[in-house]
Each structure stands twice: as C-alpha cells, then as structure tokens.
C-alpha cells in the first residue's frame, strides 16, 4: 500500500510544483513592480513554510506510530522463529514453510558481507525487509495474511552475483 501512496503523493506534489514554475515562467517576460513582487514573495514563503510544517507534523506523528522494529520478546506463544543467514550469494533459512496468520520472527544476519533481506509477495511487491549484516542480528517480525510462494531477494549490493541471490518461502494455510 505504501508504494502506491508514495507514488501518488509524489506525482501530485511534483505536478503542483511544475504548474507553479510554468505559471511564473510564463509571467516572467512581463515587467512588474519589484517591491510588490518582493512583498508577495515573502507572503508565499511564509505560506509555504507554514503549510508544509502543518502538513508534516501530523504525517510524521502518525507514521512514527507504526515502527517495524522489534522490541522485547513476543508474548504470543504461537510465534514461529526463523533464522536467516546471508552468504555470497545464497540464503540459508532454517524453515521455508511457514503458516498463514501466525507471527513470524526472522532473525536475520550474514556470514560475510552486508545483504538485504526483502520479502516479496506473490505479485512481486515488497512486503517488508531488513538488512543482513555480519556480526549483527536484525529481528524482523511479520505475519503473512495470504498463502502462496513468497520470494526473498537480496536488496543490498553484495558482489558480482548479487542479482541471483534469491530463494523462496512457502506460506501455507493450516
């Protein structure tokens, strides 16, 4: 969902920016009162700064309520723990058949260099990701809502066969 939101918001705001530039450039060959334009520019500057500030505060506040970082132990006894380790250029995953609807805790690390552990859904869209770093374990929690074959792709450049570092997860209904 966030992919579509990011795309639509970006396109709309860039389009508004382009309209502003086109309008001003079309007006640029006319001669205006410099002092009046400077005063108007100051007013627009204030509107822009206040407008963006008032828009951003609730957006930042809301999005910070949905952080993906795992803190503390999961109370749910049904949690499935999966160890995932990246190597140049393959994944070693302790369990590749996973249940729908149960929280999965991926404990992600690397044996050599940095890798990216990204889970793609059946439509090849990213659903979540974390980094796989040597000497560090990143804990990624995710609950699969649909059965199917998900793919793990490496999203951190790790050398000449980086693009072939893929594997699959089979999410099944119980």
């Amino acid at each position: 969902m966030y992919q579509q939101v990011a795309w639509m918001v970006s396109i709309v705001l860039i389009a508004l920016l382009a309209i502003a530039f086109f309008y001003v450039v079309r007006q640029s060959s006319r001669e205006g009162n410099g002092a009046a334009v400077a005063a108007a520019t100051g007013r627009w500057r204030g509107r822009l700064l206040w407008g963006v500030t008032l828009l951003c505060i609730p957006v930042v506040a809301y999005t910070l309520t949905e952080l993906p970082y795992a803190r503390g132990a999961i109370a749910n006894l049904g949690t499935v723990e999966v160890q995932a380790k990246g190597y140049q250029w393959y994944w070693e995953i302790s369990q590749t058949e996973l249940p729908v609807g149960k929280p999965i805790e991926f404990q992600v690390t690397s044996a050599d260099v940095n890798h990216g552990f990204a889970i793609y859904d059946t439509d090849m869209k990213i659903v979540t990701q974390t980094q796989a770093m040597p000497g560090v374990t990143n804990v990624l929690r995710h609950t699969f809502e649909k059965p199917g074959t998900y793919k793990i792709l490496c999203l951190e450049y790790c050398g000449v066969a980086h693009h072939s570092m893929m594997t699959e997860l089979h999410v099944v209904a119980q």
């Binding site: 966030y2 939101v5 957006v59």
Partner: peptide
Amino acid sequence: IPAVIDGTIAVNQVMHNT
C-alpha cells in the same frame, strides 16, 4: 519530495534499495 517520503520509516520498509 520523493526523498522525504522515502525518509518515512513505514515507506522505507518497502522502498529501501529499490
């Protein structure tokens, strides 16, 4: 504009390194 949007953690989770 898209840079700031990508700086949002929830968006970065599905856009990082794309």
